[in-house]
Design a protein around this nucleic acid. Sequence first.
DNA 1: CAGTTATTTAACTATTTGGTTTTATACACC
DNA 2: GGTGTATAAAACCAAATAGTTAAATAACTG
Lengths: 117, 117
Amino acid sequence: MTPDRLDNIFSALADPTRRAILARLALGTTSVTELAEPFRMSGPAVSKHLKVLERAGLIIRGREAQWRPCSLDAAPLKEVRDWLEHYRRFWETSFDRLEEYLQEVQTNGDSDGTDQR
Amino acid sequence: MTPDRLDNIFSALADPTRRAILARLALGTTSVTELAEPFRMSGPAVSKHLKVLERAGLIIRGREAQWRPCSLDAAPLKEVRDWLEHYRRFWETSFDRLEEYLQEVQTNGDSDGTDQR
DNA sequence: CAGTTATTTAACTATTTGGTTTTATACACC
DNA sequence: GGTGTATAAAACCAAATAGTTAAATAACTG
C-alpha cells in the first residue's frame, strides 16, 4: 500500500550479499555467525545487511541465549509479485510488437509517439 | 545469470519516481519532458532516472528529431519473476508453520526466568 | 566473579545516489 | 545563420550505503 514499502523491499533485494542471505535462510533458520561465514566480510557488515532485510520485513529475528536466529519471511515478496503482475503482459505478448514499433520510430519520423493497446 | 543484472534491476525498481515512470510507460511510448511533467523535479533529475532504468534494461530509447522517446522493455522483469519463483512456496504454504516456529523459539530456551516478550 | 561467545553499536571512511543549476548538443523553423 | 525547444552532460552538494575497526551488551560457563 504505502509506496515506501516497495522501496524498502526492492532496495533490500538490490544487493547480492542480501540475496545470498535470503537463499541461505530458505534452507532454514540460522545464526548471524553462520550467515556471515560464506562472505569475506566482517560481522558488523553482515549485521547491517540483516538490519536492512529486517526493515524490509524479509527476515524475522528470534532470541535464543546469546544467539539471534534469523528466519526468512517471504511475505514482502508477495507484494513484489503483485507489483510485477501489472507488467506481465509486456513480457509475454507484446514484446515482439514493441521491438517492431521501436524499429519504426527510429527509422521513420512522423508518428506522435502514442502507440499502445 | 550474472548477479549484477539483478542488482541493477532491483535497484532501478527501488525508487518511486522510477516505478512511476515505468507505470507511465506501460501506457505507451512518450518523451522525456512528458515523463517529467508529473514530478516536482528538474529535467536533468528525470534524465538521470531514465539512465538508471536504461542501464537496467527496463527502457529503450528511440530518437525522433530532438525527442528521445522512451519505451518500456519489461524483459528484465521476467528475470525478477524467475528469481521470485524460488521463494513462492514460502509465502504460500509454510508461512503459518514459520510463525509457530518463531513463537516457540522466542518463548522456549529461557530456563532461568529472564523474560523477554 | 572472570572469561568466552554472539551480536550490536559507535565512530569513521569512501563511494553512490538523488537532487540542484549551469552549460552544451542536436534538431526544427524562419 | 540565428532562435527556440528537447535533452544530456558537467559540476557540485547533501544524504545514504557499504564497508572497516574498536568498544559495548548480553548471555552462557567454569
